[in-house]
Nucleic acid binder design. Structure first.
Length: 597
RNA sequence: GGUUGUGUAGCUCAAUUGGAUAGAGCAUCUGACUACGAAUCAGAAGGUUUAAGGUUCGACUCCUUACACGACCA
């Protein structure tokens, strides 16, 4: 379709040349799809030309339109409404567009001239508690952005930076030491990440009790928080960990092992994957080296207490701590090391960090610090900042126990999909295993689509009832359209209707057929824009538009009843092409589509 | 206090990046399964795009100010 648009632009240029005798810069010839309520397929806005031509917008549209109809075979007709020139395209052109789409391999990359070598870091969990709803948005976004970039022909590495060290990890370790009695995931029958989370919560509970007690003894709150015995013990544990204390490191390895097993299960269950894992325990030392490098280069400075800082006021930021007085690292120290390591490993020209928007400032600092160090990859860093997920009851707070657990949520959406599917009673003949796979596909489709259809940078509201809904603007709506088409294709195969019929004998297209082709033709442009904006929401919207357009076509145009064999074959081919577009675009979102449901 | 993001129908979200009468879904109401899958389709109703100015042929979009909510930095 790009070619059709290009041809139209060339013709428009010629029209201006011939009618008004002036050259119009190609950049000014912007075509947009015509709004549904007007006749035509492409629209040129003529207002911008009124000044230079000294003529009214209608007059220009009329003249250009007439010239096009007389001289450009692709333009069948036109109408002018105020400053809008609507072009009607000849059906032969649409069929040519369709033919081109059909010839394209299903996995043909969409060339964009964008970055070729990309690392997308996402998920990046803490190893002290299980994944929750917020992580799901992160995981689905990261996976989808990676897939979209792959679709533009880029080489993409999916990376996961595991936050496996620090005081928060020690908290769950300490609580386990004190209250665990040697419990294991096996003995407790609890997933490893949930077991660690249980002890993290236990730590918080006892810690808070200790604070209360100290306060009752007249200690000020902030002092109580620092001096509570459990906090002191956790800090002591962190020091021991950094000193490679055998017992502490042993416990750390054991508990992290449990957590990784739990994460693996969850990742598998939600259908995301990674090519490379990084662990902060392995990058923080490299980060310290970078801090040292900065000191030597004179871009960082040391305060009297020995802590290391960077002055970013020239960049519109503040002074920022890079290394504590006691020499222990802070978040940014580790991030410096990880960025360096990632670059050594992959020499990316784009490094995407999928991180919540509460880290906006932190990521600005990271970029600025790397720039100060003169790192060539500083510019390649891009923070894909996404908004928090709120609940109808308000904000999610792990400390207040108002988080929505990822595993539990997935179970619920799959169960809801199962109930709805069984009610419809349309899946007879599927084995038990196939049915289970289908329920999983539909439940996850609903959940993923729900989280991905919203613009990433916006904060969003998670409504549990809507998230399991299967009707309207949802994943299952699109999945249903695919299942429906699959059914048609099965029937076509039975009846021996080929999809490779010649299109040349077709006379006139139905409106919905024309719209369908135009919709299918947008695919490449949508993927390119989604990659540029790093927004799966655009792909989600597109998949919905395609399904919607098909359903309209489906109710208005007969397929198997059609007596004209050429038309019948074309409609089957159009259906097959639509199924492909749905499967592709949903695939970019990490959502699978069924043959029946 | 400083920086920054958001504000669109009762609710959840769009709006091709400055273009036409601001579109979808949910909820409400009406109609369509003896032609191919009704998880569908067709239609009704629902809007002073937070407010006030400004730029423009044209503003949800850009600028200024104010208000509300959030995040971050102290």
């Amino acid at each position: 379709m790009q070619q059709l648009e290009q041809n139209l632009k060339t013709a428009l240029g010629a029209a201006f040349q011939n009618v008004f005798g002036t050259e119009v810069p190609a950049a000014q010839l912007v075509l947009q799809p015509t709004r549904k309520d007007f006749a035509g397929s492409f629209t040129l806005v003529t207002f911008p030309f009124t000044k230079s031509l000294g003529k009214g917008p209608e007059q220009i549209g009329q003249a250009v339109g007439e010239w096009l109809v007389a001289n450009e075979p692709a333009v069948k007709g036109f109408n002018v409404v105020k400053g809008f020139l609507n072009l009607e395209i000849a059906d032969a052109q649409w069929l040519a567009v369709f033919e081109q789409l059909r010839q394209l391999p299903a996995d043909a990359p969409v060339a964009t001239g964008g970055p070729q070598n990309v690392v997308v870091e996402y998920s990046s969990p803490n190893t002290n508690k299980p994944l929750h709803l917020g992580h799901l948005r992160n995981n689905f976004l990261g996976y989808s952005v990676a897939e979209i970039l792959k679709a533009t022909g880029a080489t993409v590495t999916k990376a996961n930076l595991v936050n496996d060290r620090g005081i928060h990890i020690c908290k769950s370790m300490l609580a386990y030491q004190q209250y665990g009695h040697g419990e294991t995931p096996q003995s407790a029958g609890i997933k490893g990440d949930h077991l660690a989370g249980k002890y993290y919560v236990l730590f918080e509970k006892h810690y808070r009790e200790q604070i209360k007690q100290l306060e009752a003894e007249g200690v000020a709150t902030d002092v109580a928080k620092r001096k509570a015995p459990m906090m002191l013990e956790a800090q002591d544990m962190l020091l021991k960990w950094e000193a490679n204390d055998e017992e502490v490191v042993g416990l750390w390895k054991q508990m992290n092992g449990w957590v990784y097993e739990g994460f693996d299960e969850t990742y598998k269950n939600i259908g995301v994957d990674f090519d490379k894992f990084y662990y902060e325990s392995q990058t923080y030392l490299l980060g310290k080296e970078r801090v040292e490098e900065g000191l030597q280069k004179g871009v960082f400075f040391k305060k009297e207490d020995g802590s290391v800082w960077v002055d970013l006021q020239a960049e519109g930021l503040d002074e920022k701590l890079l290394l504590r007085a006691d020499g222990t690292s802070v978040y940014i120290t580790q991030d410096l090391g990880t960025a360096e390591l990632k670059y050594q490993d992959f020499h990316y020209d784009l490094s995407v960090y999928v991180i919540a928007d509460e880290q906006n400032y932190h990521m600005q600092v990271l970029k600025a610090v790397l720039a100060k160090l003169g790192k060539p990859y500083a510019d390649a860093i891009y923070h894909l900042s996404y908004g928090m997920v709120d609940l109808p009851s308000g904000k999610m707070k792990s400390r207040e126990g108002t988080v929505v657990d990822a595993d539990e949520l997935v179970r619920e959406v799959v169960e809801a999909a199962k109930q709805a599917t069984l009610e419809k009673g349309k899946i007879e003949g599927l084995s038990e295993e196939e049915a289970a796979q289908l329920f999983h596909m539909l439940g996850l489709g609903a959940l993923k689509y729900y989280l991905l259809k919203v613009d990433p940078k916006k904060r969003m509201l998670f409504n549990p009832e809507e998230s399991v809904s299967l009707e309207g603007h949802t994943g299952p709506f699109i999945q249903y359209s695919h299942a429906r088409i699959s059914s048609i294709l099965r029937k076509a195969a039975e009846q021996g209707v080929g999809v490779d019929a010649s299109l040349t004998s077709l006379s006139e297209l139905h409106d919905t057929e024309r719209e369908m082709i135009q919709e299918l033709g947008r695919y490449a442009a949508v993927v390119a824009e989604a990659a540029r904006a790093q927004s799966p929401a655009l792909v989600a919207q597109y998949a919905y538009d395609v399904a919607k357009a098909y359903n309209r076509f489906y109710t208005e145009v007969p397929i198997f009843i059609e007596p004209d064999a050429a038309k019948k074959a074309f409609r089957v081919a159009l259906s097959a092409q639509t199924a492909r577009a749905i499967k592709n675009s949903m695939g970019l979102l990490g959502i699978q589509v069924p043959e029946r449901m």
